[in-house]
Computed example of a mutant assay.
Amino acid sequence: MSQEFDEHDDPPVTGARLTLAQVDAAIRALAASAADWSRLETIAGVLCGGVSELTGDDLLQEALTRFMEGRRVWPADVHPVVVVKNAMRSIASDARKRAELSPVDETVALADGQPTDETDVRRQAQGKVTITPEDSLSGKEQLVAVYAAVAGDEDLEMLVMAWADGLRGDEAAKALDWDKKKYEAARKRLERRLKTVDPDRRTK
Rank of each mutant, 00 (worst) to 15 (best):
A149D: 02
A31T: 04
M88S: 04
T14I: 15
L156G: 10
L167A: 03
L59T: 05
D165S: 15
S33Y: 07
S33L: 07
D153P: 00
L190F: 14
F67V: 04
L18W: 13
A35Q: 12
L190T: 03
A31D: 10
T203F: 10
V73Q: 15
K181W: 01
Q3N: 07
V146F: 04
L101P: 05
D58Q: 13
V83Y: 03
D155G: 02
R193P: 03
L54T: 03
D77L: 09
I27G: 13
A16L: 14
V150E: 02
A87W: 00
A87I: 07
L110H: 00
T14Q: 10
T196A: 10
D135S: 15
L156A: 06
K85A: 08
V121Y: 06
T19R: 09
A63T: 08
A34G: 12
T203P: 01
A29F: 06
E141F: 10
C48A: 09
A164I: 02
W163I: 05
D200P: 06
T116G: 08
F67Q: 02
V150T: 08
D24A: 13
L167R: 05
E69L: 15
R192V: 08
T116A: 12
V82G: 04
L190C: 08
D57T: 09
E157L: 00
V146R: 08
H79K: 00
S2W: 03
T42Q: 15
V23Q: 04
T14M: 09
T119H: 10
K182I: 02
V129W: 12
D120M: 03
K85E: 09
T119Y: 06
V121F: 12
V81A: 11
E118A: 14
A16M: 11
K140S: 08
F5D: 00
D105V: 07
T130Q: 12
D10P: 01
A99H: 08
P11R: 09
D6L: 01
V160H: 02
R72W: 00
T132H: 10
E191T: 03
D77S: 14
P133K: 10
P11F: 00
N86L: 03
Q61P: 04
D198Q: 09
V146Y: 04
K180G: 03
V73I: 02
L159K: 06
W74S: 07
A63G: 06
A172I: 04
K140T: 15
D77C: 07
I131C: 09
S38W: 08
D77N: 14
K140H: 11
G169Q: 02
D117T: 01
K174M: 06
V108G: 14
T203N: 10
L176Y: 05
P75V: 02
E191R: 11
P80H: 06
I43Q: 10
T116I: 04
M158Y: 01
D177Q: 15
S2H: 11
V23D: 01
W163H: 06
E118H: 06
P75D: 05
R192C: 07
A29T: 12
V197E: 07
H79R: 01
W178F: 08
D179V: 09
G152Y: 01
T107F: 15
I43A: 13
S102T: 05
E4T: 10
P133V: 03
I27W: 12
R96A: 14
P115F: 09
V197G: 11
L30E: 13
L110V: 15
R66Y: 00
A185C: 02
